[in-house]
Computed example of a mutant assay.
Amino acid sequence: MSELQHSVRVDLAERGYDIEIGEGVLEGIVDFVQQRHAVSHVAVITDSNVDGLYADAVADRFSDADIETHVLVIDPGESSKDPEVAHDLWQTMIEEGCDRQTMVLAVGGGVVGDLAGFVAATFARGLTFFQAPTTLLAQVDSSVGGKVGVNLEGAKNMVGAFWQPAGVLIDVATLTTLPDREYRAGLAEVVKYGVIMDEPFFAYLEAQADAINGRDSAVLAEIVRRCCRLKADVVEADEREESGRRAILNYGHTFCHALEAATNYTRLLHGEGVAIGMLCASRLAERLGRIGADVTSRQHALLEKLGLPLTAPADLDPDELVRLMWRDKKVSAGKLNFILPSRLGEVELVADPPVGDVRDSLGLGG
């Protein structure tokens, strides 16, 4: 196996699956699927940005293998993670003759994967599901672990399921066509893994920042491999968020989800919200005396070098952001919960910190 070819196993007994990572591997997607599932009908779900770039070619490969294939195209962006869009997909699948033997394949970023997975989990009480993520954020995070769903107004991912894919095929060559802003947004989730689990990986990112900014294929393949392995370790230990271990993946996300809701999911990409949210969470940990300023400053410096936003939009109301946090799924027993660092490479769940400290950690006046 070359330096650009990696394999990660997510060991979940009968729900276990492989993540194959490489450059140009999307050309072999039919073999990848057929080695894991007998398929006669495929519903490819993608968005209008990815359709012409990759999804049409993927669908053609299945058609060339005499497999009936339909392509279902949604609008790009977070607004498509909506129950009405899911309903439209269900209805179209009925019209296209989909049944319990149909396989759903998500080709696209995190929105496509989350929505397609939710549709797969619910149509005909559950269809086999594969992922071919084409954005960095999806490759390192959302395509792995089986969390699928849609948003409600002001409440992200509030309706969903745990529905593991049967396989994930990651082609880092797709990152060459990713717009710069989308690429950098994905890097926020990469940095997150270093903060929550792996200080040596964080140091690797610091050392490779120039190569990362240059989209070096070998470095990206290694980054994707390490992130997938780290997430797989967490998912194997706590697949359905029952022990609390999986909650560490939410570092920065309580702040992030409030920022996204306050801006109507239109002004910030998810990864941009994560970058800002991680710094807010780190400042909160500082205020609570859990870490020194150096932990925050290293995150700040790396995120800055990777071209990510560092501060919340100045026109947002901090009190409104705190109110929005109460809609977050991580509210439990009437308490706000935060994942906060205790050092670089380790985080812990902290329940019910003082609201004033939460508010001040946003870095906004008012």
Results as ranks from 00 to 15, higher is better:
Ser2Asp: 12
Ser2Gln: 06
His6Asp: 11
Arg9Val: 13
Asp11Leu: 11
Leu12Thr: 11
Glu14His: 10
Gly16Thr: 00
Glu20Tyr: 06
Gly24Arg: 02
Gly24Val: 01
Leu26Val: 10
Phe32Met: 06
Phe32Leu: 02
Phe32Pro: 10
Val33Leu: 07
Val33Pro: 03
Ala38Cys: 06
Ser40Met: 08
His41Ser: 04
Thr46Ala: 01
Asp47Ser: 03
Ser48Lys: 10
Val50Ile: 03
Gly52Tyr: 00
Tyr54Glu: 01
Ala55Tyr: 02
Ala55Leu: 07
Asp56Ser: 12
Val58Pro: 09
Phe62Gln: 10
Ile67Leu: 03
Glu68Val: 10
Thr69Trp: 07
His70Met: 11
Leu72Tyr: 01
Gly77Asp: 07
Ser79Ala: 14
Ser79Val: 07
Glu84Asn: 12
Glu84Val: 11
Glu84Met: 12
Asp88Met: 03
Gln91Ser: 15
Cys98Ile: 04
Gln101Glu: 11
Gln101Ile: 02
Met103Cys: 14
Val104Trp: 01
Gly110Asn: 00
Gly113Thr: 00
Asp114Ala: 11
Ala116Val: 05
Gly117Glu: 00
Ala120Ile: 03
Ala121Val: 00
Gly126Asp: 14
Pro133Lys: 06
Thr134Ala: 12
Ala138Pro: 07
Ala138Leu: 08
Gln139Ser: 01
Gln139Val: 10
Glu153Arg: 12
Asn157Ile: 06
Met158Ile: 14
Met158Trp: 13
Met158Arg: 14
Gly160Asn: 08
Phe162Cys: 07
Phe162Ile: 07
Trp163Val: 01
Gln164Glu: 08
Pro165Leu: 04
Val168Gly: 08
Val168Ile: 09
Val172Ile: 12
Ala173Trp: 02
Ala173Lys: 01
Leu175Gly: 15
Thr176Lys: 11
Pro179Thr: 04
Glu189Lys: 04
Glu189Gly: 01
Met197Ala: 14
Asp198Glu: 15
Ala209Arg: 14
Ala209Thr: 15
Ala211His: 15
Asp216Asn: 15
Val219Lys: 14
Val219Pro: 13
Glu222Pro: 13
Ile223Thr: 12
Cys227Asp: 01
Asp233Ala: 15
Asp233Arg: 14
Asp233Cys: 12
Arg240Cys: 09
Arg240Phe: 05
Ser243Thr: 15
Arg246Asp: 02
Arg246Pro: 06
Ile248Arg: 11
Leu249Tyr: 03
Tyr251Asn: 05
Gly252Gln: 05
Phe255Thr: 06
His257Met: 05
Ala262Tyr: 10
Thr263Phe: 01
Tyr265Gln: 04
Thr266Arg: 14
His270Arg: 02
His270Val: 00
Val274Gln: 10
Met278Asn: 11
Cys280Thr: 13
Ala281Ile: 07
Leu284Tyr: 01
Arg287Pro: 08
Leu288Gln: 10
Leu288Asn: 06
Gly289Asn: 07
Asp294Gly: 02
Thr296Phe: 08
Ala301Trp: 04
Leu308Cys: 12
Thr311Leu: 15
Ala312Phe: 08
Glu320Gly: 09
Glu320Cys: 02
Val322Gln: 05
Leu324Val: 05
Arg327Leu: 13
Ala333Ile: 02
Ile339Cys: 05
Ser342Met: 12
Ala351His: 12
Pro354Ser: 11
Gly356Glu: 11
Asp357Asn: 13
Asp357His: 15
Arg359Glu: 07
Ser361Gln: 09
Leu362Trp: 05
